[in-house]
Amino acid sequence: MNAPLLQVRGLRKSYGERVVLADVDLSVYAGDVVCLIGSSGSGKSTLLRCLNLLEPIDDGTIHLDGREISDPLIDPREVRRQVGVVFQAYNLFPHLSVLDNCTLAPRRVHGLSRADAESAARELLMRFGLGDHVDHHPDRLSGGQQQRAALVRALCLRPSVLLLDEITAALDPELVGEVLALVRELAADDVTMVLATHEMAFARDVATTVCFLHEGRILESGPPSQLFGAPREERTRAFLSRVL
């Protein structure tokens, strides 16, 4: 078997006295879709932020493509070029048009010319149904459209891994579908993703691996059929009975 694209070993993270992540081990292979499930405050978002080096970790290692990125000497910007993130609250830049949101990082970080960055961004925006909104500012868009634009913005960097942090949690129920459809499409294209989600049906359908987090630990992980069909842990069963 190939080496994992993203490998986490013994990750530990605390805010002062409070331990938010402990003994986290996770291997993500190219093309995997790993869903992190668990109640609020279980550490899903913090884990994602650690993977992108937005949060410093206290102990353990993270390897990306065989290189240890948790090494303090690594420039976090190098890592973030390869790891895209989409946040729950979209976090689009309100003063820039959708197109400029998508081309800012490719132009400034990857050094693409304006024309190249724009044609690549336009193509992705068209493909994800935002062709009409290229020149609009984010506030003119619906929540679902904004979240799709945020996905495109992350994809424009051609990341090797995409981290999605509860990207449908802030959306009205009828808008959730359009965003999830896009994520399904990405999964079908073998885009490697790690996502924190509360959408169990979606996790069951799309995930290659589901991890159940409880109080900062991955209590149980496995293919969705196993985790949803025959959960091993009592706590997993309790959580699933509440959300399903």
Partner: peptide
Amino acid sequence: PSQIASAQALGLSQGE
């Protein structure tokens, strides 16, 4: 701060 986190997640430096 989420705007700053978002910019950093895209790989922008502090100055950028």
